[in-house]
Structure formats: C-alpha cells, structure tokens
C-alpha cells in the first residue's frame, strides 16, 4: 500500500471520529489521542472498528487494539492489515 492509501485511511478515520466525538474534523490530526482528546470509549471504538473492517474489507482483531492511542497508530494498524490482505 502507498502513502496515498495511508492518507485515505487517515481521512476516513478523521471523518468518522469527528462524527462519533462531535468534534470539528479540522481539529483532528494523526497525533490526536482517541481517549484523552476525543473521549472515544470502548463501545464507540468497537463500533468504529466494524465500520473500518467493512470499508476496507479486512478483519481487525480487537486484541490488536490494546496499544492503540492515536489516530496515527490506528491508521497504521489498518494500513498494515490492509497491505497484508
């Protein structure tokens, strides 16, 4: 996968996270922390993961999310799984 793919993932994540957290999309960046800055709780995160799985036709095991804190880390995980599929 290319940088363009990564950028597309970040774009999708920012779009969905803005909606979920009721935060303006322009204030969300790859460095934004999902929990401390956007208050994304476990329920919202699991729902988001299902949406991402469907958008990219991939499987994201929820135990892979343990260390994910930022938008960038989540995008990188999706990027890695998508590249391997």
């Amino acid at each position: 996968m290319s940088q363009t793919d990564y950028d597309q993932i970040v774009q999708l994540l920012c779009d969905r996270l803005a909606d979920l957290s009721k935060t303006p999309e322009e204030s969300i960046s790859p460095e934004t922390n999902l929990i401390t800055q956007l208050s994304i709780d476990s329920i919202k995160l699991l729902g988001l993961i299902m949406e991402i799985e469907d958008a990219f036709d991939i499987s994201i095991p929820i135990n892979a999310l343990t260390d994910i804190q930022t938008v960038h880390e989540l995008a990188e995980l999706v990027h890695k799984i998508k590249s391997a599929s």
Partner: peptide, 21 residues
Amino acid sequence: GADIVRFRHNDVADMEKRLRR
C-alpha cells in the same frame, strides 16, 4: 490469546462477511 473478531449482534450476513475475510 487468539485473535478476536466480532460480528454484529445476531446478524448472520455480517457474520458470513467476516468468515469470508
């Protein structure tokens, strides 16, 4: 320690999508 994948509650079509993947 297994990989955990969830399907939408009682949604068999969603379950099959995930099995296929």
